[in-house]
Design a protein around this nucleic acid. Structure first.
Lengths: 222, 222
DNA sequence: GTCTATACGATGATAGAC
DNA sequence: GTCTATCATCGTATAGAC
């Protein structure tokens, strides 16, 4: 109630800054973005940014939190739903891919944020704690789903962290791979066809690699 | 013969610069590294670097080329060997993981280089062409291996680019994931146990997801 | 309360003199 | 090969105009 300073309307400077910064951070990384560039694209002067954000790291943190919140909002329904773990897993991965495909900077921003842990000082890292916690929560829900599937006998007894990493690699890395990925595909990554094919391939791969087809009921030995 | 200016011995400034720069570029990315930092760690002043390299981008390009060359040297034997595609594939992935595990900055540097295509001007990109070509060659050999395996009936009829991306994600991304990966694993990424487990998990995943166990000979229908 | 002008200290890459 | 010098630009602080 007392948090918001004012009812900053849609299209306000604050939102435009976040929008522009999201694109730039995704494309050029934290260190590669200058606040002057952000400001000029918004149509402001550099120091004006400091009336909305206390500093570059705070802006970056808020951008990342927003992106992660969008992902979480999209993936959580599938993760938290009742039902077969294998179905929920496929729905969750499908939702994740949809989100990464619709907002083209998302995968890059997210992947970059994982690589930029050596760039921040101790007090800067404090600003990134909420981001880390939100990410940890999402990952934990995902691992919980894997664990349930293993216990119910739907999934093989894979290593939870390794399976998580493999899924992240197959989704986030792919849509972050930019020019390299497009050279590989021989065409755009984000076209409807390419996204649909990626979803099929990842789903098939996960299904074959994770789901234990030989033990559909309760068998545990091999 | 006429290329080398002098017989710069081992431990020369040039080699020390490359070594230090490799570590810093891996940890902080291209934009996050200052030449002053590189110089001071080598025991030089900033401008002295320019007597060894024409500029920051050239230094970066040479570092990346060296890292990729190490990988290629390690992976090529398995790729180019005769024999069953599935065996060669597993050996190649094993070699790749060994290389990524032994030189801890390698995965990060490589992954970052894929994300940093928006940071360079046209003439800067020209300096990165050899790197791109070397990478393309390696990827092409890998895809060739996949293609052979599909044609011989060993592998499922997966999308070559998508399967390649999945393997890169499962290997390069994993070993680049730094603090996040360690939080996930609950321990170090590069410990002997973690590396061995990763290799097992990836191999099992690839085996299940790629290799067509149901058609060991020539069947093509489903 | 929102934005701008000006300016500071630090650091960026690079030139030219020893 | 190395250092002194230079100049643009970095993120940030302050003071004031709408």
């Amino acid at each position: 109630m007392t948090k918001r300073v004012a009812a900053a309307g849609p299209g306000s400077s604050r939102e435009k800054i976040l929008e522009v910064a999201e694109e730039l951070f995704a494309r050029q990384g934290f260190a590669g973005v200058s606040l002057a560039d952000v400001a000029s694209r918004v149509g402001l002067r550099k120091p004006s940014l400091f009336h909305h954000f206390p500093g570059k790291v705070a802006l970056y943190a808020e951008v990342c939190e927003g992106v992660l919140a969008r992902i979480a909002a999209r993936v959580r329904p599938a993760l938290d739903a009742p039902g077969l773990a294998s179905l929920r897993l496929e729905r969750a991965i499908g939702s994740l891919i949809d989100e990464l495909a619709e907002h083209r900077g998302t995968a890059r921003l997210l992947l970059r944020s994982l690589l930029e842990d050596d760039l921040f000082s101790a007090e800067d890292q404090a600003r990134l704690v909420p981001l880390d916690r939100a990410l940890a929560e999402l990952v934990q829900s995902f691992q919980e789903l894997l664990r349930e599937g293993i216990e119910s006998g739907e999934f093989r007894r894979v290593s939870l962290p390794d399976a998580t990493q493999t899924v992240i690699g197959a989704t986030v890395y792919h849509f972050a791979s930019g020019e390299f990925g497009e050279t590989l595909l021989g065409g755009p990554i984000f076209s409807a066809e390419a996204v649909a094919r990626r979803k099929r391939e990842v789903t098939a791969f996960i299904r074959a690699g994770l789901i234990d087809e030989t033990a559909p009921l309760k068998s545990e030995g091999d």
